[in-house]
């Protein structure tokens, strides 16, 4: 018994040390935002500082923060809703189909997930330019929905496949419609899967940088692009960048922390 307690204590100490070392970069980012510029650029670096909200005042002068937030929110929610609307029914259909092509189609969706974005982004860019959608939120939503809807389809395919058919069969015998068997019987039981899918979609599109960098313009760009695009111009210091990074990381980190049960569940079912 004593050896066991000692082992647990050892494990916990190791974990705490690892975590502390691990989170130094994150703590540094957070602290930078509250440092006055003079102290960020002190050489050698200082470890103590007098906290200030100066950097937050600056970013509201330098950026249209609300517009950037709005872009990020519109694009990630748009992508997520569209991907769920397309992917959830498709996942159900593939899981319930008795055709031997169903598994082929499911693997097709999985394969689409693995395509490097550069291969589709260039022709897609030209396509958007030709139909006049370049620089709009739609361009980003449309291309990100391909990857995300493929991901949602595969993930929901695994969730629905693990679900016994008995309940739906019983409902159908009782006179339930085919749509009812899907919408009112099967769907409510896979809500955790839908939450997990939504979580990954939001995270992926919120953090996405490559597609909006080339598909949006200065009015429609999201936070992730503003972070880098503004860097290097005058008046941008690590402090203001740290302050802006608060807006791009805190919503998504909080969401993942609160929903971490679904996050872990999603990891084993789907392929992020």
């Amino acid at each position: 018994m004593k050896a066991r307690t000692r082992q647990i204590a050892f494990e916990r100490t190791t974990l705490v040390v690892i975590l502390a070392l691990y989170l130094i970069p994150v703590l540094w980012l957070v602290s930078t935002a509250y440092k006055p510029p003079r102290e960020i650029f002190s050489s050698p670096p200082t470890f103590t500082f007098s906290p200030t909200l100066f950097n937050f005042e600056r970013i509201f002068q330098l950026f249209d923060v609300w517009q950037l937030l709005k872009s990020s929110i519109v694009m990630s929610l748009g992508t997520t809703v569209l991907s769920l609307l397309l992917g959830v029914p498709a996942g159900y259909a593939l899981a319930r189909s008795k055709s031997r092509y169903a598994i082929v189609v499911a693997y097709f969706f999985l394969a689409i997930r693995t395509v490097p974005i550069i291969a589709t982004l260039i022709p897609f860019y030209l396509m958007m330019r030709d139909i006049g959608l370049l620089g709009t939120w739609w361009a980003v939503i449309l291309i990100n929905t391909t990857l995300n809807c493929a991901f949602v389809t595969w993930m929901m395919f695994s969730y629905f496949r693990a679900l016994p058919r008995d309940m739906e069969e019983a409902a159908l015998t009782d006179g339930c419609t085919l749509w009812g068997a899907f919408y009112r019987v099967a769907l409510p039981t896979v809500v955790p899967g839908i939450i997990a899918s939504a979580l990954f979609c939001i995270m992926f599109s919120w953090n996405d940088f490559l597609t909006p960098m080339f598909l949006t313009n200065s009015d429609t760009k999201p936070l992730s692009v503003a972070l880098l695009a503004s860097f290097g111009t005058k008046d941008i210091t690590w402090g203001t960048l740290g302050a802006l990074a608060h807006f791009s990381t805190i919503p998504i980190v909080l969401m993942a922390l609160f929903l971490n049960r679904y996050f872990v569940q999603g990891l084993t079912k789907g392929v992020h």
Partner: peptide
């Protein structure tokens, strides 16, 4: 476990910028 989720969920651009700043030679 919850804390370990932080690096995974942070915007990758921000991760890059953090390390660029941390590794800057002057400050």
């Amino acid at each position: 476990l919850a804390f370990l989720l932080i690096p995974v969920t942070i915007t990758p651009v921000v991760v890059g910028l953090i390390f660029r700043a941390l590794l800057a030679v002057d400050y």
